[in-house]
Design a protein around this nucleic acid. Sequence first.
DNA 1: GCATGTTGTAAACATCTGCTGACTTGGCGA
DNA 2: TCGCCAAGTCAGCAGATGTTTACAACATGC
Lengths: 210, 210
Amino acid sequence: MATSSPHTSTTGEAGQRRRDAAGTRQLLLDAARRRFATDGYTGTTVRDIADEAGVNVALISRYFTSKEGLFEACLVGAVDELSHAVDPDVTLDRLPETIATQLAGTGRGGKPNQFLLLLRSSGDEQADRIRRNTVHSFAERLARAAGWHPGHPDADRLMLRAQIALATGFGIVLLRVSTGLEPLSSAGRDDLVGPMQDLVDGLLRERDAR
Amino acid sequence: MATSSPHTSTTGEAGQRRRDAAGTRQLLLDAARRRFATDGYTGTTVRDIADEAGVNVALISRYFTSKEGLFEACLVGAVDELSHAVDPDVTLDRLPETIATQLAGTGRGGKPNQFLLLLRSSGDEQADRIRRNTVHSFAERLARAAGWHPGHPDADRLMLRAQIALATGFGIVLLRVSTGLEPLSSAGRDDLVGPMQDLVDGLLRERDAR
DNA sequence: GCATGTTGTAAACATCTGCTGACTTGGCGA
DNA sequence: TCGCCAAGTCAGCAGATGTTTACAACATGC
């Protein structure tokens, strides 16, 4: 969120400039990220996005070349935000609360839905590469917290488990937005920390390897 | 595509009747389930489905009224199959292998992708209700295995954990088809059983509650 | 053989969708 | 004040998409 709460601009509001390229560009980005995350790429039309942003459709092509260009811009924006939101060198001890914190706020239209963008494919090759790389990078962070490193004797086993833990995160976000499953959908950070603690302990905590 | 499989009926094959309503209906159902699961509802066109089934587009409307009708038919079919595939009264001990078995075979186009149908929304109210109910039912099976029952003192806590376990399953399937993340995507039943064992133990095994 | 209902085909329809090009409007410096 | 250019609007095109309609091919009962 760049400014205070830049959404809902239909026409000239109080401190809003009426013609602001960077501003409307951001409006489009915000609306698109919400839409793409909830409805997927093909489920979202450029007119939907423009309407939600309160902006003319043609400006999408002007600022982002195409719908795919806009999607890719959304993706890199979300990736950037998410990357900064989670410590690349998390420890196993702090992992549960980190995951819980990221997942919370996903009641209906929270920011963490941006995680969903990583699961939404546009069919575009370049965007898909970004998606894949990002997911891979997150899995590696989890694995590293569990003691994984490139030459680890049990590297594959650890990485698999880290990816399963990551899958849990994605699954939770997805269930929350796709079905309104309770009590999962209403669970807040504090409700999630406990289960996540036990999940991390069971899945990633090192014991005598099997 | 589908060379080995029994589909691809274009004209009179060996034991294939040339005009078989029930047969082409099934061809459409199979093709649609594959497509809807992998590409989502809006990402799939009726012409895609018809082509993959080797059948004329108009027959979709004839046999299923509409695209949404076809989607709903796919959903009830998948729900029926999946419901029969997993024991409603699983024990906690057998849960890990059950989950692993269901998840395996999801390399690229396996049957378990049908799980994905439960996460694909068509926007149709009735279809969404089916999805929600089915997911809820599966969560309840997991919860029951963990000792949950309607009047349990810690009912919510247990149900939340069961739903998180279910989310893990969905997340794994999704990561496998959406990103080709390795080693998760190539992991077979035997690779998954171990992690699932530890996950179930950590997440659902009863201890002194908290 | 012929009439009849079923199965499959082809074309067209109305609408939606992404995108473009010509145009208008607003802000700003000279 | 005026001219200029960026920012925004509008209408429309070309193709895709879900659906319908009219028609042909086939199988079956008489």
